[in-house]
Amino acid sequence: MTQQPDRASPLAMLETMMLIRAYEETIVAMSEAGTGPGSCTSVGQEASAVGVVHALGAHDRILTNHRSAGHLLARGADPGRMLAEVLGRRDGYCKGKSGHLHISAKALGVILTSTIVGGELSLATGVALSQKMLAEDDGIVVCFFGDGAACEGVFHESLNLATVWELPILYVCENNQWQAFVHRRETMPVDEVRHWAAAHAIDSRSVDGNDVEAVHAAAREAVGRIRETGKPMFLETLTYRLRGHFEPDDQSYVDPAELAAWQARDPIALLQRRLLARDELTAAQLRTIERNVRARLDDATLFAEASPFPDISELITDIYA
């Protein structure tokens, strides 16, 4: 699979990250205004999503979790159709039946957003088995989950089976330090999930999940290795959930010093500063990107809000094939 060169460029990744942030902020604003539902945002985790997804080829498949907006948008999902789905409208990716918690997009190779924590881990092996047995290309599967899902038993079942069956899966653990309303340090004896993954004889690494260039380099290398060997790999992106578990959430349970420290490492600001310092981005370019992203979200919002609700007859369609 050849990678579009522009997708791998820092500027392209910056624009996608800013699109994701603007999308999530749009949903938060809708929620606060009472015009949209609550949601689980991926704010703070944009570098992890973009760094990995921009390293994929067209035939690769994705399974993800309830913080999936970043993965979908990085894969090229239309923010208008995503917002329509969040609002329960007919033009959503899943006809409004998913809401924001289960968006899948078959045409983009996004097989699953699982709101059952760990559901993505339980299906990833089967998707990879199909890739291995049926696909004529060298497509692989990327499975995004968090440190919370790593505490589910199926995490170990999935990694074990992927190893013994030699399945082409890149497990990406977005360790955002939070498991709903519980800090990871309360539930795990180690700081990094990769120690558990390594016990399953999987090549396991961790990377600064707020540094998109580092994530992208690690993901590109891992994807290449998986294509070459057919075996699974594990990549942990060490990051932070900058907003609450489910909007609205005042984060009163979060240590302010910890939050401030991670806000200072905001992945988008980090990349902007770096690119400006390297003269790969000008202030004018940045303003242009901001304007483009804002315009896309404005269009997306108009599209979503104009989309009709599904007909009530849809209540009992799509149950059986």
Binding site: L112, S122, G126, V127, S158, N160
Partner: peptide, 23 residues
């Protein structure tokens, strides 16, 4: 025709993922 680990969750989950994608 495959043996699996004794792990019903991942056996069933693997079937679901495989079924969704062509097997």
């Amino acid at each position: 025709v495959r043996n699996t680990p004794l792990a019903e969750g991942i056996i069933a989950g693997t079937a679901v993922g495989a079924a969704a994608t062509g097997l």
